[in-house]
């Protein structure tokens, strides 16, 4: 192997990489919050009494989970303008990510809700709580505790999936990598560095989720 590694050639592009990284972080942060919110509403609808809503959400979940993310993205960015909905690249990208995470987290959170012991519902009913109160105060918090690891993983998958947004020229991390590579042809160096940055982001996210977990669920800290 006589390839001459030239990592130092990347220095001039530091700004681009940092900008890309910040875009990726921003997209991920907003997506995580909105996507999990959407997932919670979706799961509530799936658990609710409204048949129509239940089936609509079911169809949404199946549609998203059984089509490629890149097709969803292209549909939103290239397809929707045909019916008059024009979005900028990053708006389309964000929307695609939120819709995607929303579908997956609907399924994940629903599983947590279904694991609610019957006794919890009976206690809530006996105490006179309404259905909405029971859902928000009694069912949801333990459900989120139960599925927290799965939700964490899904959010990380969506973060990694944001690389696809480079295809519609959202200037996130992978877009920056592609751009640099097209200038200096140092594919090995560029993609290795970017891969390590994604890895670092994923590790960081996992840690952040742990911190949130610590403060959100104090009962799991308590010991006998």
């Amino acid at each position: 192997m006589d390839y001459n590694f030239q990592f130092s050639e990347l220095w001039p592009y530091t700004n681009l990489i940092v900008d890309g990284l910040l875009w990726t972080i921003a997209l991920t942060l907003i997506t995580t919050i909105l996507g999990c919110l959407l997932g919670t509403l979706g799961a509530a609808a799936r658990a609710g009494r409204n048949k129509l809503l239940k089936h609509l959400v079911g169809a949404y979940v199946e549609l998203i989970r059984n089509t490629p993310f890149i097709v969803q993205l292209f549909f939103i960015f290239f397809g929707l303008p045909s019916i008059g909905i024009k979005l900028t690249a990053w708006e389309a990208g964000l929307l695609a990510m939120v819709i995607n995470l929303g579908a997956y987290s609907t399924e994940i959170i629903r599983a947590g809700i279904e694991a609610t012991p019957k006794g919890q519902l009976e206690a809530a009913r006996t105490l006179g709580l309404s259905r909405v109160q029971t859902f928000i105060r009694v069912v949801l918090p333990p459900a989120l505790q139960t599925i927290y690891p799965a939700l964490t993983s899904q959010c990380i998958i969506v973060m990694l999936g944001s690389a696809v947004l480079s295809q519609i020229s959202v200037q996130e991390l992978t877009f920056a990598a592609n751009f640099i590579q097209s200038r200096n042809f140092l594919s090995f160096e560029v993609y290795l560095v970017v891969a390590l940055l994604y890895l670092a982001l994923a590790v960081l996210m996992r840690q952040l989720f742990k911190v949130v977990h610590y403060y959100a669920f104090p009962n799991l800290r308590a010991r006998k």
């Binding site: 012991p117 006794g119 009976e122 206690a123 006996t126 918090p141 333990p142 505790q145 669920f217």
Partner: peptide, 13 residues
């Protein structure tokens, strides 16, 4: 009407 259950059914969180 109050009710107490065999398995307590306290809210764990």
């Amino acid at each position: 009407v109050g009710m107490v259950f065999q398995h307590f059914n306290l809210f764990p969180h």
